[in-house]
Structures are given as structure tokens and as C-alpha cells.
Design a protein around this nucleic acid. Sequence first.
DNA 1: TTGTAGGCGTTATCAC
DNA 2: GTGATAACGCCTACAA
Lengths: 347, 347
Amino acid sequence: MLKLGVRKKNMESNITIYDIAKKLKITAATVSRALSDNPRISKSTKELVLKTAKDMNYRPNRLAAALKNGKSKTVGVVLPYINKNFFSTVIRGIEEELYPEGYNVIICQTHESVDRERETLKTLMKSQVDGVIISVARYSQDWDHLEEVIKKGIPLIFFDRRVTSITASSITIDDFKGSYDATKHLIQQGRRRIAHLTVDLLLEIYKNRLEGYKLALKEAKIPFDEKLVVVLRSDIAEGKKAAEHLMSLQNPPDAIVSASDHGALGAINWLKSEGYKIPRDISVVGFSNEPFTQFMEMPISSIDQKPLEMGKKAASIFLKQLKDNNSDVENIVIEPELMIRASSILK
Amino acid sequence: MLKLGVRKKNMESNITIYDIAKKLKITAATVSRALSDNPRISKSTKELVLKTAKDMNYRPNRLAAALKNGKSKTVGVVLPYINKNFFSTVIRGIEEELYPEGYNVIICQTHESVDRERETLKTLMKSQVDGVIISVARYSQDWDHLEEVIKKGIPLIFFDRRVTSITASSITIDDFKGSYDATKHLIQQGRRRIAHLTVDLLLEIYKNRLEGYKLALKEAKIPFDEKLVVVLRSDIAEGKKAAEHLMSLQNPPDAIVSASDHGALGAINWLKSEGYKIPRDISVVGFSNEPFTQFMEMPISSIDQKPLEMGKKAASIFLKQLKDNNSDVENIVIEPELMIRASSILK
DNA sequence: TTGTAGGCGTTATCAC
DNA sequence: GTGATAACGCCTACAA
């Protein structure tokens, strides 16, 4: 096909404060003042400028402003995956809090890779973000890239998965209590032989869930039995295997507290397929309150992690730190909520 | 508490190309050339600059570069909600494609509100995004805000929900075929009285799903019965009500093709609670292939919308349009995939 | 109250 | 090959 020169797109080039100034025969400085609510300007010119700005369909260039005053009005959110209900709901919370304040959010997925996390933070630094809200990748061990952010004076806020060795604000849920509550609930229902499915004991959150489980047992004078703790990856297939293993024990459990909903689901699926009646033969409680836990024909008890609240709170900590430059580090812990459903109600 | 002046944070102020230049006793221009692979530079100085840049832990300021050359290396993604599996997976696809090219993504939720959509696009314009990838809010009627983006010469790409009256590229799935396949599948299983749950017939995607359903019926010489089409909001409660209504008809259906998984789930839950056996008494197929459809004790047949592929493709269209300024508008349609599961397999 | 001028960090166009 | 300089669009001390 013959091309007759480069086709010109019909694009109105961007209007700047200079264009407005020229039209009104004033200077750009005045226009700038009018637009930024500066008191040093007469009411009449201000109104005039505002009107013409609207007429000319003026859109301020945030980049220029950002470059000038060193604030990009942008926050980086770093997390493992976006397409998991917990994380996407946290994002929603962050956005809802930040949007009214004129902030945009750049979302970066690490896919649980430390390299990617490091890369990502570099990019965010280049983008001059005003803050970073992060849930760290699972298998990170060194934290230079996080330290660097803090060194630059950029607020860093952890959510859900934090690094205790780094001094920064955080918002987490009380995993210990969540797990404790779940276990206690099962004990109150008369369960005595309670198994625990966990995921990755290197991560603080799973460590805490294990400890909460242990304390509840201890308080009820039920001896802790290591054989009843199974470590798995957080997926359904592993949950099935774990259940199979547990039920083959000489002394099988009459309840399961899982540190993940998917693990719980896998276990339930296997148990049902083998003819066990839930909760009659065995009760199950999950963790995370994933949407599917309530949709099931037999809804699964679970621990709600308050992701929306977590996101909102993380954002508001950021805003506070920004306003009050020497506000202290705060480590907030939210109470999780035990959602009791059919999988653990013995009438 | 007494505050002794403002505490100075220990922050290394950002290093610029001037700092590097000063150290090496050359000019910033040379540094810039070294960093940007400009050919007009000697190999030795280039290497020297690169090394010192690394040593000094230099991070280029993208804002400055963006301001200078009018490209922000940022793309806006506008969609109703982020915490829905379909959308968050599309985002993941977009990110995976754009990340290697050095692009960042700004994600904006409209919450299905046109006002918010309009606001959002304004913000993105201010942020000087290089492109917009959008799935429009449900009840929009006028599209000035979209036209404006195009007028500015910024690539606009629709995904899933497009506006046919606007000339722009799009990537959608063949909703017609998805629904057609589902219906045909049910007919092949011997079903003759098939109901259709739909959501909002103002939206093209739901219109198409209805039409696909109709064609499959027609081909099988099954008369279309308006009484079997129920319009609902896409949630579980409505699905229940719809099922209740349908089964109370004088001539109730023996199958349901739902335009939404949640609708299908609600219907299934109600049917089961009333003692109907699925699929023996009635088969059900959903739409979207939400994760829960496969998790269920009785997995639900559904249509997979290929969200990851959709995201990737949307991003690659954007990249193409950016490179080749007069590349043509393309409207790509992806084939959906019918996932046949227990809810519609008769033996 | 308004205008002038310099600068944010980078890139591009000149010269040399 | 390198240096000087202007420009991107906005903001803001300072001057008038």
C-alpha cells in the first residue's frame, strides 16, 4: 500500500498556562497563582482565569508540577499477585483512601520473586513515588532494597507480610489470635484432636498462626502433637494430600485448622469423596475468608483478614507520615474475625 | 513533648547527571549521552560514566525525561472493579506484556460509575499517560470523555466492554459463540427446555450472549420462549430468585445457561436446597469461569473468557499503535472456551 | 496585585 | 566526541 507521507493525527496539542496567559494578556505566573488558590491574586482575574482555563479545556501537566516540587502524587504498591482476592481488595482499600487526596497508585507484582521485587522498587524510585506500600515476597532474605527506600526518606509501609528487622510502619492482622480463635472455637465444639495445616513457616504470619493454635491447645490442656501439623503449599491438591495423610494416622484428627482456605478446601473435597461427613466426623476451619468459602454448598468457616480495612489503614498511615514528617513509626495490628459456618457447627 | 526543631531525616538527596558530570569533570550532556546509548560518544568515557553512575547509585528521574520528551512510559487501565477475578487477571496480562518494555500501569476503578470514569480519564490525561486501556462502566451513555482521549492522539484500547460507536481498537471475546456453544452443548445432552439468565441487556456483551443462545435454539428447531429469559443483577441472591421463578412456571426448564457464574451459583444453591438433583433434573452452565466454579463439590460448567490472553493482547495492540503511528484500528475477537464440568454432564 | 526570572532533571540542537 | 545552551510546563521568591 502506498503511503502518502505521514498522516497527521487530529490532535490538539496540550494547552499550557502560557496559552491561557497569552489569551488573557497576563503572565503565566498569574495564571499559575489563579489555578493554585494562591491568595496573592485579585478575585476578578482569578475567576477570569478559571473560566478561560475551563473554556480552553486546560489540563495541568502533573509531571511538570511533580518535577518542580519533588512530589509526584503517586504511591507504589508492591505485592506478590494482584489476582488474589485478598490482595486486590487491599488495593481497593488503598485506592479508596488515596483517590480523594489526589494520589495515583502504581501497582507492581513480584510474583513472589525477590529479584522482581528489587527491580520493581528501583523502577518506583525512578518514578519518584512519594511512598511505597508493600507486602514482601515470600522467600526474600536480604532487604537492602527496602533499606534504600527508607534512606531516601520515602515512607515505606508494610501490610500483611512485614519484615521485623526493618524499622517501618506496618499494618497486619493478628494472625496469632485468628488461629487461636479458630482452634478455641473447635475445642468449644468438643473437638480434642485438632490438626493444623500450614504453609511456610519461614513467614512470620504462618509462624504466628501455628503459635496461636498451640496456645489454644495448651489452655485446654490438650497436648501438642507434632504429627498433626502438616506443611503444604497453599493449594487444593496439597490440601487433599494432607487430609489423606492425616486420616491415615493411627489416631486421626476430629478437626482441622488450616492456615489457608485453599488447603481447607482441598482437605474437605478429599474427605467428602471418601465418605466422611463434615462437620459430623471432622470439622474444618480455613483462613482468609476467600469468597468461595461462603459460596460453597457447605460454607467453610474461616478467618476474615479485613483486607479493605487493611488497605485503607495502610494508605492513611502513609498520608499521616507525609504530612507530619517526624511522626513515629506505628505498627498496627487489626483483629481478624472468625466467620463460623457450616463446616464447623455441630448443631 | 518538646520538639527541638525539625528533625532532619537521613536522606541522600537524589543524584543527578550533574553530580556525575561534576565528579568526572565533564558535562551533563555527555553523561546523558553515555546513559542513553547515544553513538556520539567514545567508548572509554561511556564506560567510565556507566561505572560511576552505578557507584554513586544513580537513578534516572523518569519525570524529568517524561516532561522533556512528552512520553511518560505510563499506561492507564480503567475498569469497573479490580477485585474481581476476571479483571485482575486481565491486569496481570497487561502488566506482564508492558513491564519488559519499561512501562508502568496506573489502575483506576470506576465502580461502574460514569462520573467516576470521566474523572478518572481526566486524571490520566493530567498524568500524561501514553495510552488508555479501558473496559467501560455499565451504564454510560455519552462518550465525550473517551472522544477527548482519542482527540489528543492518545491510543485508546477497549477490552471486554467496548463502545461500538467509537472508532478505536478493541479486544473482546466472542460472547455470542460462548453462549451458543454452551446452549448447543446442553441440547446435545438432550435438553430441550433451556432457560437463560442474563444481566443487563443494554450492554453489548449480554446482548450477544442472548443472541448466541437464541441461535443455538433455532438451529435445533427449539422455539424461543421469552418466559425462559430472566434478567437479573449478577449476584447470588438474584440467581436464587430466578431459579425459584423459573421452576414455578407451568412448564419449567430442564437446563439453564447463565450469562454470569454468580447467577448460576445462586440458581444451583436454590435448586439443591429444594431437592432438585443437578444435573439429573436440571443442567446448569455459567459464564466467566470464575475460580470457584471448579472448586465446588460439584464443579460448574462455564465459559472461560481468557482474561490473561485478553490483557496481553490489549497491551500488545497498544505497543503496536505506539510504534506505528498510523497502524489501523483493529478489533480482535478471542474465542472463548467451554469448560464442561459436572453441572452439565448427564452420565 | 502582578510581572520577572530561575530552576526542577533530562534531552536535543547547536557549535567547536 | 564533547561542551554550551535552550527547552519541556510549572512553581515561587523576589521585585515592582
